[in-house]
Each structure stands twice: as structure tokens, then as C-alpha cells.
Amino acid sequence: MPSVSWNFISKLPTEGMTKGGILPAITGTVLLTFITTIFAVPFGIACAIYLNEYARPSVLTNIIRASIRNLSGIPSIIYGLFGLALFVQALRLGTSVLSAGLTLGLLSLPYIITTTEEALKRIPTVMREATLALGATQFETIRDVVLPKALPGILTGVILTLSRAAGETAPILFTGVAFYINGLATSFNQEFMALPYHLYMLSTQHQSIGQVRPLAYGTAVVLIILVFIMNCIAFYIRFKQRTQD
């Protein structure tokens, strides 16, 4: 893999993106995933807690569950449209890394809820009952007993979901991704470069596709390695937890 070198991942693109590195695309993807995380993870975990710990079987609960199932089946390009209509237009955030990150957050939400709920389900009811019997409120039970115990399971689901989000392209197409920015993104209201879009651009949109093919291969390799590392971390946490139980 001659195209992937230290220079490739630590330098800015040069000469019309036919030479140089992909550093802005890497930092862009990291920043984007960071925004997705701070938005989707608290909301997703809170919703899963509600569904698993508080909600009783009712019409409302059924509607919430049905919504989550349907949200996870909606094509990602429709999330892109929704992000465009909501964040870029209605909330006037413009095309920016913030709009794109929030859009990916919406996309990730149903997955985080589902995987968190599964992790919570695995905690035996006896543990909750024991704490409640000692006089703790339900919130204290969740905070001090359920969540710490379910943490590895939740973490696995969150990391797997974020690895998907980091590789998504369709939802960020209209919400803030750019071909090129002449520096590293420093604020939330700037447009940004992202690894998956960079690969798309290098392989279909760039003017000298043949010439930049090695860069496209390099970008693909970096993107896949990034996603695989995240997956491996998730698998490791899951494996360790299973051997502990």
C-alpha cells in the first residue's frame, strides 16, 4: 500500500488535490462523528431507559416502539433531505459541520436506542428490586446500578452505530460537506471535508480521475481501517463482557 504513508494522513491536499494528503478529511470526519455523538448518545440512551425501565405496555409505548422501528428503516438519503429542511433551512444553521453532524445524529438515534435497550434488558430484574427494596428511588437505581452494569453493552452498540455514521455519505451531501477546504476545520459553522465523501469525489467527481486513483485507494483504505478499528473495539468490549459473565 504505497499510497498510505504518514504524509498521506498528516498533510493537506496539494496541486488541485492530485497530490498531498487527506488530513482535512480525517479531522472533518472526526469532528462530524463527535457532534453526532454528543447529540445522539445522550438522547438515545435516555429514550432506551424510558422504554425499558419506565414505560408500561400502552398505546403510547407501542407508538414509540413502532416509530423507532420505522425510523431505522428509512433510507439515509431521506434523512439528508430532512436535515436540509430542518437544520440548514428552518433552523438557519446553513451548510455546516453542525448541520451534518445533527443529521447523522438523527440517523443514529434509532440504532442507539435499540442496542441500548437490549443491553438494559440483559440486567436481571432482581438487581433493580434489591436496590429499590433498600429505599433507593428509581432514578438512583438506574444511575447507580443498572447503567454501570449495562455500560459495556451500551458502549458496544454506540461504537458500532458511530462506525456506521462515520462511513455515511448520503445524509451529509446537502448538509455541509465540501470537495475541498484550504485548511483544517476550526469551527462548527464551517463546511468540511469527510473521508467517505472524499472517496466519492476522488472516484467520480475529480477532473483527473485516473491520476488521483492512488489517492482514492488510499482514502478507501484509511476509511475502512477506521471503521474496522471501531468495530474491533466494540467486539473486544463485547467479548470481554461475555467472558466475565
Partner: peptide, 10 residues
């Protein structure tokens, strides 16, 4: 399942 769709398109 985790491979990004752009990588498959590539």
C-alpha cells in the same frame, strides 16, 4: 455490514 457504502461503490 460495517463497510461504508462508498467503499462498495468504489
Amino acid at each position: 455490514a460495517a463497510i461504508p457504502s462508498v467503499a462498495i461503490g468504489f
